[in-house]
Design a protein around this nucleic acid. Structure first.
Lengths: 238, 238
DNA sequence: CGATCAGTTGAGAATGGTCAAATTCGGTGG
DNA sequence: CCACCGAATTTGACCATTCTCAACTGATCG
């Protein structure tokens, strides 16, 4: 969490708190802070929610349920990330808390309102949208053009960098509340196959994910093995 | 192309033209109009381009080349669609003209500048970003959780709606400059397999794509067969 | 009239999925 | 602390889908 991000979250926090006390129609948008417990559904697929949702802390899964009964996980937003960009009216989007989560909610149609927000609000949101776009793009590359092992390793590496910061890492180790089923829905694999892939990575000493902890003994080695380049995680313009 | 979209393109056109004549530092951004021929590369993967690119007319492929040598096509932007959202500095993005194309270019770091554009410019751009986001989301669903036939049919249906407008269609027929290889790179399939899938769709009388023409005799039937719902193509807020 | 590129087809291989049965893990109540 | 329950993980055997490689056709262009 960079200083810049910390500042922004503090700004949201301050706005949310003050609004909770004296409902002042200032120049800023309404901001609500909400807490969820692990496993709780934040937005269900048939809800019509018009709001920017922003993660203050915790792990979130943002996905979509298809008419064939399956789910695809679009993103795992962490602290400082946007969850929704458009309204969820047409989207069958489903947002879940994977751990205890705090989110900020700026109600209203996202795109319409963004331009009327004060710049200290809108600018960080735009950057967060750009960051998410970078993740999404890389995610599509994984889904479309990488094998299961490569794909899974990419995800673990991406999470490592996002959880631990971009400092030059040699090894990674962090708690991770995803189930293999969550991972599968994100990677376009079955939970069973995710399990086999994780086993392979573990037996080769490349990465392990057991009991809610991810460990990568040599980040650079795994990264070069699967062609992972973390530069997409830090925007050029920041 | 809706009236709203037409208006926006006219606005860009007017701005671009006037800037070409008398370089006036008005309150609006610089706007350039550029033309490309079919097959031309608009932005190559190692270029660092900081600009909003906007399609005025023609078919574009926006993709990404991976370190394993393959390509993934992220989107086929058509008239009124944004091509890039962030800078392409970190992204290995590759933008190609699939037909004769006219694009508008608003130079500068996209996210930083958007908020300083006059609202008649920034508002439609935000909406275009939201539209692209909706397409991307659905695209990820296809890549991750739909079989090859379903996925291909989805793409053909999406293109039908985008080319012909959302009017209640019974049948679709339109020229389409994509190669089977382009389609494969978008769908995460090999060109060979795309060929087999198209053959299957054709033999079942569901859809045909030959000699640069897509034909779908019964749009609703195909849509319900593969679970396609076009509502994501028209934003709720429009 | 070659040359080239998109499309087409076949045969066999590889990757990932399905189904079903353990086994382990994290609580929860006694 | 221990027994138990449900959810998540693990494993095996078999199957389906998609890929790879290779050859061939057909159209287009200089």
């Amino acid at each position: 969490m960079t200083g810049e991000l910390g500042d922004f979250l503090q700004l949201l926090e301050a706005s949310a708190t003050s609004l909770g006390n004296r409902r002042k129609a200032s120049d800023g948008p309404n901001i609500w802070r909400r807490n969820y417990t692990a496993g709780e559904t934040i937005v269900d697929w048939d809800e019509k929610k018009q709001a920017f949702l922003f993660v203050a802390s915790g792990w979130v899964a943002s996905g979509k349920v298809l008419t064939n009964g399956t789910r695809i996980v679009l993103d795992f937003p962490l602290a400082g990330d946007v969850i929704t960009i458009g309204s969820t009216e047409w989207a069958r989007e489903i947002i879940t808390a994977l751990s205890p989560v705090t989110i900020f909610e700026l109600p209203g149609a996202p795109i319409e309102n963004l331009l009327s927000y004060p710049r200290p609000i809108s600018q960080p949101i735009l950057k967060a949208i750009a960051r998410r776009n970078a993740r999404t793009t890389e995610h599509m590359a994984s889904l479309g053009r990488r094998g299961a092992v490569e794909r899974t390793a990419h995800m673990l590496l991406e999470l490592s960098y996002r959880v631990q910061g971009q400092a030059k890492m040699t090894k990674a180790k962090f708690p991770c509340p995803l189930t293999q089923s969550d991972l599968g829905d994100a990677l376009g694999l079955t939970a069973v196959h995710v399990n086999r892939v994780l086993k392979e990575l573990r037996e080769k000493g490349l990465a392990s994910f057991r009991n809610g902890v991810v460990e990568i003994p040599d980040v650079d080695r795994l990264a070069s093995l699967v062609g992972f380049d973390p530069s997409y995680l830090s925007l050029a313009s920041e």
